[in-house]
Amino acid sequence: MSEPAPIVLIIDDEIQIRRFLRTGFELNGFVVHEAGTGAEAIRTATLRPIDLVILDLGLPDMDGSEVVEKIRSWSSVPLIVLSVRSSEAEKVKLLERGADDYVVKPFGMAELLARVRVALRRQMRAMSGEPIVKIGPLTIDLSARAVLLNEVRLTLTPKEYRLLQILAQHAGNVVTHQHLLKEVWGSIHVQDTHYLRIFVRKLRQKIEANPNSPRILVTELGVGYRLAQPASEAENNAWNVAEAPGAKGE
């Protein structure tokens, strides 16, 4: 990265976790700030410029969703939550409050860094107003409302396009069922998950090389969907040789 080193704020009450996160981030060229409590985190986030927040749930002084809400009240900084498995409802709640993504504990540094890069890229794209999202062979031009697969323009129904559009705006990050249902079908349909399932199937038929093993539009069970945005341009170009992104690897 040629830009100045991104600054990450790590909010975690466990010193051992803060320590490995600090080492891992510093090895990858980040500047690290730490906070052990919610109050300290909010103080740091208001006083210093922050490019990214990593928030572990279960802080001693504050509910995780409260921290998310407080930070979101003045900042759109990318925010990634560390959570435990089998708490899908909690993840959904935090995503709805404004968290960008989550990583399930225990996790490896590579997994977290992949999520972090995606979130930073999304933030950069949002600030520059870049209208084009590329995922492997798929190109979504948000300003021209065009979707191309291997340079060939696809015909999508208005609802299919709307679904893909919302996912592309959050490319790489998970988008909850509720959010998608509300944006595409309206708020009275937020419980009608089957609409989504049927439309995602139709969309996969059009954009995936193998709709039964999707690699672009992937499911996050019990939470939502994400467009599998590769973490970097180089990775994107290597799409066809690489393993599926998001796989647990080194």
């Binding site: 051992q16 976790i17 490995f20 080492t23 891992g24 996790f107 490896g108 590579a110």
Partner: peptide, 10 residues
């Protein structure tokens, strides 16, 4: 365990 796994991955 989360610390051990994380530290190992770093």
């Amino acid at each position: 365990l989360a610390s051990i796994l994380g530290a190992a991955s770093v």
